[in-house]
Design a protein around this nucleic acid. Sequence first.
DNA 1: CCTACCGATCGGTAGG
DNA 2: CCTACCGATCGGTAGG
Lengths: 229, 229
Amino acid sequence: MVAPRPADASESRAQILAAASRLFAARGFEATSLQAIADELGVTKQAVLHHFRSKDQLRQAVLDDMVAHFREAVPRLLFAATASEDRFDAVFGELFHFFAQAPDRARLLVREALDRPAEVKKVLRGPVRPWVDAVASYIRQGQASGRHYADVDPEAYVSLITLFVVSAAASAQVSQATMPTADGGDVRGRWDGELHRIAKSALFTPSPRATPTPASKPKPRTKSAKQPR
Amino acid sequence: MVAPRPADASESRAQILAAASRLFAARGFEATSLQAIADELGVTKQAVLHHFRSKDQLRQAVLDDMVAHFREAVPRLLFAATASEDRFDAVFGELFHFFAQAPDRARLLVREALDRPAEVKKVLRGPVRPWVDAVASYIRQGQASGRHYADVDPEAYVSLITLFVVSAAASAQVSQATMPTADGGDVRGRWDGELHRIAKSALFTPSPRATPTPASKPKPRTKSAKQPR
DNA sequence: CCTACCGATCGGTAGG
DNA sequence: CCTACCGATCGGTAGG
């Protein structure tokens, strides 16, 4: 697991950030020593401290890095809402994909929310509020046209669904253990499919017109969330 | 915050468990020293180690204690399902109440799920699987009578809603920060109400008969979850 | 970036 | 002999 020699300082920084993200997500901040991060990269503890003045500064950089990734992804997430034929499936799929394909992101976010709620609130306000507001305004349009339930609280709905996707990705291994496995079925697929179904059917009115009722529509599987970079 | 002299050994054990639960939930296991737990109670670290052979055994006792509380509560939760006029509101209210009135339980559970997924899976299988199975069978009855959507995956639905309630309780402070507060509204109430609405409207078909459609029914507020011991 | 270290504090155990 | 602890200190390791 030893990485090749870093060519320059920024590459070293990036490697340290990646290793720290992985270890903080898996074990937590307090349980991860600087030595463990250094060992992962085949360097010394002091090499890590050359790039980040303290362990706390490294923690902050890891959180900022994750938020930056989300900020980058927001335009793509919102583009999905405008371009796709089925807006809901596109946006939900992008959001789900963002955390499900990198569960460490979800775990890190949950850990930081528990350890440092004030800090996380501060860094989330920036990129998440615009995301919530944009999707909420789409929902209001849908409410005006009768496609969505009138009593949906748009901001609360988007915030909660985002929390659900993060939580499901972070704790998939444990939470799925509460489901029966004896029938040899695809637990992961049932889990993801039901999450998608809950989010959708809590939003869409079962209109007898164009949109098929959620109950009669086969649920799109996780595969549909995949896409090229 | 110093507790009175413990009268006997079991009382000391209970006080240590309570203090450790609080600190593990708030800061995490690694970030909590035995000294911090002892300080909280006004005793020495060695007094703590007299009652629990090691810090790891204390961790296990704290987790077992929380699971025991849930196991105790399950009959009441299931009784709510059989006795109440509105089964869903009663069961959801009891589940919500169990975690919302003691957010440390939720935080501890999430932390342990991240730190020790295998252990948590093991201790959850006991009391949570019966709970999931029992509620799932109620859902199947509702599906047979057309009250619930036919494409609900009962076990996945119950597992996910339980996860959502735990996650919402554990991270309420942070997650609610993604909602606007400028209008001076009751953010907590909107949040809890929308969580309840999502869970309900993803389950109930908008029947034109007895059950009112989710969209036309005023959402029961959090107050409804409260009840005497 | 490494070798060589520091003040402190960690979980756990000694005898009484 | 038991319980419920105490003051002191063990060998290692933390961040810096």
